[in-house]
Design a binder for these strands. Structure first.
Lengths: 175, 175
DNA sequence: TGACGCATGTAAAACGTTACATGATTTG
DNA sequence: CAAATCATGTAACGTTTTACATGCGTCA
């Protein structure tokens, strides 16, 4: 599920502009996926060429015209295939664990700081999920709710794990 | 911590060839980072040009000559700066959650299957960590051990989370 | 008046993988 | 006899971000 397929999936809900899609992307899927305009606009254009979407121009005064993209049957098929495809997870890269791996080389005070930076990152994600909650309760379908709950458990587990780590490292510093 | 910086970090342990570095990479950091030869060799060459490492040729019969790379003071500095740098987490992309988000569009039987595929992926990671254990107990420093324990807790939490999800979805299917 | 929201887009760069090529030696 | 290990490397490709460019309306 690269950005292209995810965009096709979002278009199942109905025609959207690139701008709209970015907002949907960042809000609904913000917890586990993201996309910049620099990828969205070229991808939509490419999808149109390939017949996965169709574009309709909505003329506007003052503002740039809106390009409203709508899924074709072919585009729908491409998405459904991707959705049903065997799950393959691309190699996971964890910035924090990579740092931790080399902590032996780092001065003592900076170690705790970096873990705290990680904790504040996690808290940021917890906060973002909390803000998302009303939207989930209103608009989300059953699986999107499960997605949300998975995310909440995930970040809370992560937080506890990081807290334990901090305790262990603080302990070492004082011995 | 891109591949380049991670390689520099691994070179702190002493001079290594690109081939050695790949093995260190895949075994020690395999749980949370990876690198292919297609990235390692060009990066080492570039690092030499930039004065971050120095290369010494070890002539061999039959086999290609070994290029042994050693960290320079400048390379050490570059790594230490990266290690100490403020922690920034690049946007997290979760293949599984992205799928789950669109599960409403998927036929019922395929849903459970994909979650089971995810579980078997997690089990694979748990297994890989288990295999790594002897090496950690022998060679790892204190922080690499913490790294390992973090990893173990992480995958176990993930597994439980996925199991709960499966239960919830199975429940729905039978109602 | 400056920032933000709306709305589009391009070009360059960064980062990385996959597939290919070479070729000897060892192991099953 | 085939496959894996050792050891290097290149070329093509894919994906995505960043930075830039445009320009109007609105809100503080």
């Amino acid at each position: 599920m690269n950005i292209r397929n995810t965009l096709l999936g979002l278009l199942l809900d109905g025609p959207q502009t690139g701008y709209d899609l970015k907002q949907m992307f960042d809000s609904s899927l913000g917890f586990f996926a993201g996309a910049s305009f620099g990828s969205i606009y070229p991808i939509l254009k490419r999808c149109e060429k390939q017949g996965l979407v169709e574009m309709e121009l909505e003329l506007q005064d003052g503002k740039p015209n809106r390009k409203i993209y709508q899924l074709t049957l072919e585009g729908r098929k491409v998405f459904m295939d991707a959705l049903s495809d065997e799950l393959t997870i691309s190699p996971y890269r964890n910035e924090f664990l990579t740092r931790l791996f080399f902590f032996g080389r780092l001065e003592g005070s900076r170690r705790e700081e970096i873990i705290r930076e990680y904790l504040s990152y996690i808290d940021g994600r917890i906060g973002a999920l909390a803000e998302l909650r009303p939207m989930v309760e209103e608009n989300a379908d059953a699986y999107q709710s499960l997605c949300y709950r998975f995310g909440v458990r995930y970040v809370n587990d992560l937080r506890e794990n990081a807290r334990m780590l901090l305790t262990e490292i603080e302990g070492e510093g004082k011995e």
